[in-house]
């Protein structure tokens, strides 16, 4: 009886109106573990290692719902896109409703989308919400012979305790190159930013540098596109436009470490 009551409550709250706390984590089953769901969609369309991988790169959709709809319309007009990457800050306040609002727009994309957690997603109960809606804060996947390593670099949210980013995990992921030809690292706060744990900047850059097959390092947070080698070690670090800028990049990756960068502007729908 108690279980059925709970389920009834759950069904009612799935329409969103009956909310027990804005910080609650529970979402309808269809909106849980979206990282896994999107990876299943992605791998259902397998890609050869020799094919060019092409994906959209953008970040920081936090509280830009007007722009999100225009972004989806624009990406859906692109051809031969494999998936979309959102470089963190899905939400502004770390609330479940915000992550669902974004998902309700991004699920209209013709291709799967993948995310990494941003500092704003860690405010309040955000970490638990992100784990419920999207999945693990650190994860990796392989597609088209390319290993994507996505990790939490929001060190300031942990008080710079030296634990985030998890360099041990990152090192292992970079070292494990079985059945892959290329690697790409995705995070939110770039190591050049003051919100990155200052004691871990150099060790992090060293770990990244240790990879022999890294194409580039991707992040968001600073709300503008940059492309450079800040550590002068031949490692390319890119940062993404945020949704507000109404621009995104399309990254094409092929060969061992070759890549091409396109910039697309998207206008407000009339």
């Amino acid at each position: 009886m108690q279980v059925s009551g709970l389920l009834g409550m759950c069904a009612l709250s799935s329409c969103g109106l009956l909310e027990f706390s804005p910080n609650q984590t529970l979402v309808p089953a269809a909106e849980r573990q979206l990282t896994t769901q999107n990876l299943i969609r992605l791998t259902s369309r397998p890609k050869q290692e020799s094919d060019t991988l092409r994906f959209v790169f953008i970040g920081d959709c936090q509280r830009f719902y007007d722009e999100a709809e225009d972004f989806v319309a624009s990406v859906n007009q692109q051809r031969k896109i494999d998936f979309v990457i959102i470089a963190g800050d899905i939400s502004d306040f770390g609330l479940v409703r915000e992550m669902r609002w974004i998902h309700h727009r991004l699920r209209k994309l013709n291709v799967p989308y993948l995310t990494v957690i941003g500092n704003h997603d860690e405010v309040g109960n955000g970490r638990a919400v992100y784990e419920s809606v999207f999945g693990p804060l650190n994860y990796s996947f392989v597609y088209g012979g390319t290993k994507f390593i996505c990790l939490d670099t929001n060190g300031r949210e942990y008080g710079f305790q030296g634990q985030v980013p998890d360099l041990g995990w990152l090192g292992k992921q970079l070292a494990d190159t079985a059945n892959t030809r290329r690697s790409i690292v995705l995070c939110h706060v770039p190591p050049t930013d003051e919100d990155f744990d200052p004691n871990l900047v150099q060790p992090y850059a060293r770990t990244i540098r240790s990879s022999r097959q890294l194409v580039f390092h991707l992040s968001g947070h600073i709300h503008r596109f940059t492309n450079g080698q800040p550590f002068h070690d031949s490692v390319q670090y890119l940062t993404a436009y945020n949704f507000r800028k109404r621009h995104y990049n399309i990254l094409s990756v092929w060969g061992r470490r070759k890549f091409n960068l396109e910039t697309v502007a998207y206008a407000p729908a009339l």
Binding site: L18, R63, D92, L95, W101
Partner: peptide
């Protein structure tokens, strides 16, 4: 509604609807 939902609506007059920020208490 609450302050954070309301602020979200204010800055997204097209992308968010009033119905999306509402909560019901009984």
């Amino acid at each position: 509604t609450n302050d954070l939902y309301f602020v979200s609506l204010l800055t997204n007059t097209k992308g968010l609807a009033l119905g999306q920020i509402l909560t019901l208490g009984l």
